[in-house]
Design a protein around this nucleic acid. Structure first.
Lengths: 180, 180
DNA sequence: TCCGAAGACTTCAACCCTAAAATTCGAAGC
DNA sequence: GCTTCGAATTTTAGGGTTGAAGTCTTCGGA
């Protein structure tokens, strides 16, 4: 049923092992498929740990995880690395209001600039600065190192199979979501 | 490098497909292993979607995702379903302060009770109420249905392999974390 | 027995997010 | 050419979280 979702605030966690936890669960709730449960719990636990790891890396670079996401979105948009706030908000999955605040902070830190679009003065253009791009690159390098270490126990064949299965799960969850 | 982490606030997301996104990334950052990237991005995107799904289910039952986690922890602890706030906080990966507030809310809603331990008056005991347990059961039923649907495209063999690989990743990330 | 240290929990201030209201500007209708 | 509708962004109010400071209780040494 999914572990606790968000990035933890405390480091030394001391959780029970996955199998332990599932065993306890079965005592309290009989019709539980341990195989399913294992996948689901591992997924969310893994994700939590990874977010903590990313958080450390970005913190070491002097930016927050949230800021890194904005940098990412801008880079992905390609040169000249410009996007509107609502476009960004949609991609990052948060509200326009939250985006406004993030841009406030990032502008103050010199990672992006914000200016009105002179062609259409309703719009605002957020643009990556050189410093922002450089921070992104640093974070990117750290992230790829970490990711490679994370997957080091898996063979190329396994990595492919894993990617494939996860993609199928992703398709399925999007399908379920679409149906409501 | 992991997608945007937290549970989105907006539903209709319209993200680029995974492969699309990775292709764009490779343009901007050459030494990127697409296989690794696919696994990592799928993991975090999947998790985000799952959290949204869980959130809907628990919301339908009149509790929040956060509250469900507390109920879970208490049930896992086994009868008589009692734990201290700091014990709970550690398991859920949040600060004691946050735990205090959650317990405040849940006490007001009748999901748990809070009382001082008369044997050791420094401690506080949080105990699941009958209503709390019933809510947990409802949420549990909904969750298992969803999880079974999520994995319906995977054969039993695939589920096992997936669980196994995820567990290995989890071990690895814990190992990396321990090293700092 | 008294005092100080340590532990468990709570309170306080600051921060970030969401949802909803307000603002600002552009576009279409009359 | 005014006016109204609609879209993009910002502002406001209200949760929820963290980190630090504060309170209360227990425990051990003088």
């Amino acid at each position: 049923m999914g572990d606790t979702p968000d990035t933890a605030g405390i480091d030394g966690v001391s959780e029970p092992s996955l199998d332990e936890q599932i065993a306890v669960y079965q005592r309290e709730f009989q019709d539980l498929d341990p195989q399913v449960e294992k996948v689901v719990s591992a997924l969310s636990r893994l994700n939590r740990r990874m977010n903590v790891a990313y958080g450390r890396q970005t913190a070491a670079l002097g930016i927050s995880n949230a800021e890194w996401e904005v940098l990412k979105a801008l880079v992905i948009s390609g040169a000249p690395y410009r996007m509107g706030p609502s476009e960004l908000a949609k991609q990052l999955g948060l509200t326009p209001a939250a985006m406004t605040h993030r841009i406030d902070r990032m502008t103050a830190e010199g990672l992006v600039t914000r200016e009105r679009d002179e062609n259409n003065r309703v719009r605002v253009i957020v643009e990556l600065t050189a410093e922002g791009r450089s921070k992104w690159l640093d974070a990117m390098r750290a992230a790829t190192v970490f990711e490679e270490e994370l997957l080091q126990d898996l063979s190329a064949g396994e990595r492919g199979a894993l990617g494939d299965m996860l993609t199928r799960l992703l398709d399925r969850v999007e399908d379920l979501q679409a149906r409501g």
